[in-house]
């Protein structure tokens, strides 16, 4: 008996010291869902709760990096969270492995331990315990390797897209309904160009005209085109004397009063009072185009 006590005494004497050093040793609590029933390609979640004194901080630089650990095991993701409790800090590590081991018989595999380091008064290292899992084959045992056929891919489950389809049809129908109207307004409707708004039509004619050589004839034609657009907008042949009543009937054009007055004066000069004079320098073709563009905008405002 004495001998027994004597034999135990060093252990009893060491017990407080062990308890003291245990406080510095991080407490490691692995938790894994299961350690069986895995097959090649499965993802394995492995959680470890490490409790350290509050003064220690996880050295994230030393955490294992995702990547291949060995030829049949990959570490896919590593993440962690920290929660503080009384005097201690709980680090929860979440490791996701993927196993690539092809087997013909169930086998026991070891997921190796990983080092985790903490920074504090003195460096502290903990290692996650190794973990054993059982992996099962994916090929039936009575079939030779060369007879194994690759299974067809699983047909993806159709997503419920009926509501999207209806919405798409509604949008398309709306667009189709509006498109001809817009095309007409902008004078782009190929078979109805004559019914397009006068200035939209004239704008297109002027663009065509501007591609031809810029001579006096083209310039005169441009003035005539603008006259016709004004006539069509007014509903009768518009002359300079009727401009004010035209502007009163079409207020959208009122802000173009000065430009239109200039246009009529220009037309009078070019066609009647000085037909042989060169084109005035302040009224080039581009100015006619600019006027037409402004009229197109006014035309859109007025509808």
């Amino acid at each position: 008996m004495f001998k027994l006590l004597f034999g135990l005494s060093p252990a009893l004497l060491l017990a407080p010291a062990l308890a003291c050093s245990a406080e510095l040793t991080p407490r490691i609590e692995p938790s894994a869902p299961r350690n069986f029933g895995y097959v090649m390609g499965d993802l394995i979640d492995y959680h470890v709760l490490i409790t350290v004194p509050e003064s220690y901080a996880l050295e994230t630089e030393y955490l294992p990096k995702p990547g291949a650990l060995d030829e049949w095991l990959d570490l896919r993701t590593v993440s962690w969270t920290k929660t503080n409790a009384k005097d201690v800090a709980h680090y929860r590590l979440r490791l996701t492995y993927q196993v690539f081991k092809g087997v013909r018989q169930p086998e026991k595999l070891t997921i190796p331990s990983l080092p985790v380091r903490f920074q504090g008064q003195a460096p502290l290292e903990a290692r996650t315990p190794p973990w054993y899992i059982t992996i099962a084959p994916i090929i039936p045992p009575d079939i030779a390797d060369e007879k194994v056929e690759i299974r067809e891919s699983v047909v993806p489950e159709p997503l419920p897209i009926l509501s999207h389809r209806l919405r798409l049809i509604a949008y398309l129908a709306g667009t189709l309904a509006v498109l001809p109207l817009l095309a007409w307004r902008y004078g782009k409707l190929p078979f109805f160009t004559k019914t397009a708004p006068p200035f939209a039509r004239t704008m297109r004619d002027l663009k065509k005209l501007s591609r031809k050589p810029a001579d006096a004839d083209a310039y005169r034609t441009a003035i005539k085109l603008l006259h016709r657009a004004l006539d069509d907008t007014a509903g009768f042949r518009l002359f300079a004397g009727e401009l004010e009543s035209f502007l009163a009937d079409h207020p959208a054009f009122a802000e173009l009063r000065d430009e239109l007055n200039h246009f009529f004066a220009l037309s009078r000069q070019v066609f009647f009072t000085a037909p042989d004079a060169p084109i005035p320098a302040d009224s080039l073709f581009s100015r006619l185009e600019a006027l037409c563009r402004q009229c197109v905008l006014a035309e859109r405002r007025s509808v």
């Binding site: 006259h227 006539d231 042949r237 002359f239 009647f272």
Partner: peptide, 8 residues
């Protein structure tokens, strides 16, 4: 006539 004949 005045309303329909254009110049220029």
């Amino acid at each position: 006539i005045l309303q329909r004949v254009a110049a220029p």
